[in-house]
């Protein structure tokens, strides 16, 4: 059959669901081993965070699309959680190999790392369903759930989201070319504009690097 944009999107959706069917809603045994190797075991905080964002995402999705679609939002979030655990495991395996380390206590107890990784996973699911595909399940075409909507849902700074994108792409080989292109567009949008909004952690990094270099002049404020 000729490939139409809707059919292509549906294929992507089916591919994502197929990949995530074998993934679990809970941390795998391998992940639990990493958690147990930590100086401070992060498992409880990870499970509480996933549960907390489940309610937040479901509510925000329903507010954006309509109260009748709350369960659809919950279903998409659950797919995102599966991808989150799958990518986290892959990341830790590659870091263990690269650093010859098994205690990832600092990273796995970093709230921003987990929030960014989870947001990126849910963004992949949302982008896969996309605007056209979302019409196929009846959500209104006027509701723009495309990036950076996800940053508002997770109350996440754009630059913190940016920090996980490349490692996410490295860790998940089954991402489609379209999805990698989407994440790359997110990166560009963040670096070109979103990361320069007031309150961005990027300004702190610039300041710290200047201080480290012994320079005292302040970074330009966005207003300038």
């Amino acid at each position: 059959l000729p490939q139409t944009p809707v059919r292509a999107a549906m294929n992507n959706i089916q591919q994502l669901i197929m990949i995530l069917n074998s993934a679990t809603d809970k941390p795998s045994d391998t992940l639990i081993t990493y958690f147990n190797n930590c100086t401070v075991n992060p498992q409880d905080s990870i499970l509480k965070r996933v549960e907390s964002f489940h309610h937040i995402f479901k509510k925000k999705f329903a507010e954006a699309v309509g109260q009748g679609w709350a369960e659809t939002g919950a279903q998409r979030y659950r797919l995102g959680v599966r991808l989150y655990y799958r990518v986290m495991e892959s990341m830790l395996k590659s870091e263990e190999e690269r650093l010859s380390v098994q205690n990832f206590s600092t990273l796995l107890n970093d709230n921003i790392f987990h929030t960014s990784l989870l947001a990126c996973a849910v963004e992949v699911v949302m982008a896969t369903y996309g605007r056209n595909a979302s019409q196929s399940d009846g959500t209104s075409a006027e509701t723009d759930l495309s990036f950076p909507w996800i940053l508002n849902v997770f109350d996440l700074k754009a630059f913190d989201f940016y920090k996980v994108i490349e490692s996410f792409i490295r860790a998940e080989p089954s991402l489609t070319r379209e999805m990698i292109k989407h994440l790359e567009r997110c990166e560009h949008r963040i670096l070109e504009s979103l990361a320069w909004q007031s309150g961005s952690p990027l300004f702190d990094l610039i300041k710290q690097s200047k201080e480290r270099e012994g320079q005292t002049d302040q970074p330009e404020t966005t207003s300038t």
């Binding site: 990341m91 590659s94 870091e95 690269r98 650093l99 990832f104 600092t106 990273l107 970093d110 921003i112 790392f113 920090k163 996980v164 490349e166 490692s167 792409i169 490295r170 080989p173 991402l175 070319r177 990698i180 292109k181 790359e184």
Partner: peptide, 21 residues
């Protein structure tokens, strides 16, 4: 992923990006 421009250096990964080393 061939089209994607990987920017992390050889010795860099998610641990460095979140100041864990």
């Amino acid at each position: 992923a061939q089209d994607y421009h990987f920017g992390l250096e050889e010795g860099e990964g998610i641990s460095e990006l979140f100041d864990c080393n």
